[in-house]
Every structure is written in C-alpha cells, then in structure tokens.
Design a binder for these strands. Structure first.
Lengths: 250, 250
DNA sequence: GCATAGCGTGCCACGATACGGCACGATTGC
DNA sequence: GCAATCGTGCCGTATCGTGGCACGCTATGC
C-alpha cells in the first residue's frame, strides 16, 4: 500500500529543503540510511528536476525552482497569494507588527504561506511552511468559525491538545469562542499556543463563504493592548475582506 | 541509476498540480499507465502529505500545503524574496505595469517567483512558477549578460529555439545583445517570446557579481514606447540594484 | 426500472528493480 | 605523507512495486 521509495524520497526532499545546501553524508547521518540509498535517491530527484547541485560546491544539493510550479489548490493558482500581498503590507504599515497569511491543510492544521515583517527588534517568528493547530490559534479559529458545524464536530471529537495554560481545550468553550468570532469578525489568541505570542486573525472567504485562508497580526504579549483590540480587530477584518474582494474582482 | 517509481511519482505530482482537482482516470489517460499503478502512487503521495483529497469531491486529488515548506535555494532563505517585495511595488507604482521577479533554474530556464500586478484592464499574465527560455526573454538575457562566457557558450551550443519572427536565434546577434545589456544595465524584449508581449529587465547581482534573479517590467506591445526606453530602463536597473543593496544590507 | 458503461478501489503472483554492503578514487586534515 | 572521510559506482540478492483482474458503486441511457 505504501511505496517505500516514494515516501522516503519525499522525506529526503524535505530534509534537503531544511538543510540546503546539504551533502550526502549529512543526510545519511540524519536518516541513518546507507550511503548508496541516499545517493541514489538524490540522483533520482535530480533527474526529475526537483533537486540540483550547488553552483559553488557541486557536491552539495539544493532545491531547484521546479517546486514553484507546484502550488496548492488552496492558493487557487496563487491568485490568493498575489491578491493578499499589498493589503498585508498596508496592514503592517498601519500596525507595525508582523502579518501572516495562512491556509488550512486538509482541516488538520494551518500552514503559513506568506509573511510581512515588522520593524521591531523583538518580533514573532514563523517561517513560511510552518504549521499550527486549528483550535489553539487565532489563524485557525478564524477558519473554524466559518466551517460547517460537522467539521467542527469532527475536530472536537479528537481531544483538543493543550499547548499552554491558556489553551482552550473545552469543546463548549471553543464553540462559544467561534460564535464570538462570527459576530465580531475576528479571532483572538493570547498565549494559547506559543507562550508570549498573541495574535488577531480574520478569514479570507470564497464567494460561497468557504474560508480559504486567514490573515493574522501577531505580536509578543508585551505589546498586546486589550484596549485597542476592537480597533485592531476591525483593521484585520477589513484587510481580510479586502483580499477577498481583490481576488474575486480580478 | 534512476528510480522509476520516484521519477514517475513526481511526474504524477506535477500533473496533479496542473490539472487539480483531478481523478485517477484522467491521470491514467494522461500517462497511459495502468489504473492500479497511478492509484497506488497517489495514495503514497497522499500518505507523505503532499497530496490530499478534494473537499467537495473526495475522489479528486489536489496538492497539499506541504509543498510550501519546500522552497528553492535560489530564494536564499527568502531574503531575496523579502528584499525584492517593496522595491517591486514602488516600480509598479511608478510605471503602472506588471512587475515580475524571476530566478534562473539550473541555467536552463527562468522561473517566475513573484509578481506585482498593474491596474490596466489589459495586462500581461505570468503565474508564479511559470518558466521561460533564457535567450528569448528580457528576464533571461539580463541573467545571461552577467554569466561567465563558458555558460553562454554552452547555451548557444544547443540550437536557439525560435518562438516568433522576432526571436534572436543567431548566436552572434545574441552575444552583441548581451554586450549591450552590460553597458546599458538593462535587457529588452519586443515580442521575441510571446507575441504582443514586451519587457525590460535588469539583474539582481550577488556581492561577487553572480546574477541571482532579475526584475522585469512587462507590458502589451501597444503600450511599449521606444522613446521612453532609456528612462524606463534606468528605473528598472535602479530597482534591481536597490534590491541587491537591501539584500546585502540586511 | 433495468441494463450497461465507467468509475475508484483492493487483491495477488510474478518478475523487474531498488537495496545496501563493499570497494575505489579524490579530498581534507593532521 | 599518512589516515580518515567523503562522494561515487558496482553487483548479487531479496524485496517491492507492477499490472492484470475482479469487485462494488454511481451515473447514464434505453
């Protein structure tokens, strides 16, 4: 049922992405596999055009540009990506905090797809491709709030994992929060996932109300100001709906 | 030397990306492979997290968000990407034409990695991930002009493919054009690749003069004005060198 | 309503093929 | 100049992917 060489080659591909440019030896240590096996896999990935030798050190491997041609359906041929770009920068300019764009992956987790950094010396850090849980983040709850109830039921059927003291693990409490998100238009997270990280997020919706992605402003707890929450929440929600409009208008 | 199942699974992955959401049957027709083989490959790709079933029609497959964690080395840990973003927007604002950021892939072709759209109703369209030939585009020649002569020799050793009446297919003519690019600081393309598409491009250089990427402004032939070429060329070149500086300063 | 065609999926014996131990040559560090 | 380490290539064997086939299901057309 599972093709060993395929899954392994993809694991290796991911490892190359995280450690590029990387040598055969480093990868064998990482995986504990025979040299020949890793080497053969790298050559195959190279022949497929997904890997290439580093220009300076031809014994090191790195990811080729081919992967950019393969983009998730969630990005809708990257029109979402392009539409979000400028509104995100404007939001960053207005608030001077880091802005993230995330999409849900198979309703399992959120994946960061784009980022605009702020100018503060201390700032939150998520890399593009990082994942986070749906129930414990603002970005995830902004999506959850606009999903069919059946999907939410399925999520709470599994135990809601606790990441910190503040994490919402009670299904009823989560549902109440989601209801609040729908009326206010934005979701909030104070230290519920990563300690000392707060965020305010709003969903980008499809024409039929399906949540495609969410925009979030995230900041250290020290800069979180509850008094300004309504104002910031409105700004984030406006940005998100602006992206929806741009996407559909194009 | 080549692992059949690996290369084939990646071909299938790419096919899914281009036709998503797609069914098993459609893929079997595309490749002429047995149903079971395609099916098994899809399941394996799914288990690796690179594929997922469509939400509406669970019998259709699409690309998962996992691929976003795998980024080309050419983006230099996305510092190039981040450095280019705002200068590109300023250039778009100045010219009101679509701006593309492209990187060379294994010196075979250029790949579009970012885009900022203009406001015109009629505009050029390249998606992120699209590829174009080195010798027939402004974006490619901006790179070629700053490559070691040996690399250019290797390129012209293969036949220069013709895409339109205007395509430069004569090696000597290409070399003369590259020399002009080096003195002027920007490359030009009038309908040499896609008919009715013109572009002006300049390279983003590394500290040692290696071309990393190129910035291009592209427009329909109807809006191309030869009289303004020097001015626009200078603006594009300034933007590109500004990106180089930002990248190194950061 | 029934027949049929087409779909996605699961099974299994066969045989191609990827595995991994090993050896070679190049490079680096002592 | 020696030794350790690395990337690479080879080859017999066991494994693993292959693809023909059959099943259950859905949509289509008579």
């Amino acid at each position: 049922m599972e093709m060993k060489s395929v899954t392994r080659s993809l694991r290796i591909l991911e490892a190359v992405a995280h450690h590029q440019p990387v040598t055969v030896g480093e990868l064998t240590k990482l995986f504990g596999l025979p040299k020949s096996t890793v080497q053969r896999t790298l050559v195959s990935l190279n022949e497929a055009g997904w890997l290439r030798a580093n220009r300076q050190d031809t014994t090191r491997w790195e990811i080729g540009a081919r992967v950019l041609a393969v983009r998730p359906a969630a990005l809708q041929g990257s029109s979402l990506f392009a539409a979000a770009r400028e509104p995100m920068i404007r939001l960053r300019d207005a608030l001077n905090e880091t802005i993230h764009l995330s999409v849900p992956d198979a309703l399992q987790c959120m994946v960061v797809v784009d980022r605009v950094d702020c100018a503060h010396a201390v700032r939150t850090y998520y890399a593009i491709g990082d994942t986070s849980p749906l129930h414990a983040t603002a970005t995830g709850r902004a999506i959850l709030a606009h999903l069919p109830p059946a999907d939410v039921d399925e999520l709470v059927a599994h135990r809601l994992e606790r990441y910190s003291d503040a994490t919402t693990v009670d299904p009823a409490e989560l549902r109440a929060e989601l209801k609040r998100v729908r009326t206010d238009g934005y979701a909030v997270n104070r230290n519920q996932y990563r300690p000392d990280v707060c965020a305010i997020a709003a969903p980008v919706l499809d024409e039929d109300g399906t949540p495609l992605a969410s925009v979030a402003v995230s900041m250290p707890d020290s800069r979180y100001d509850a008094d300004r929450l309504p104002e910031w929440g409105r700004l984030v929600a406006d940005t998100a709906s602006g992206i929806s409009d741009r996407r559909l208008g194009a």
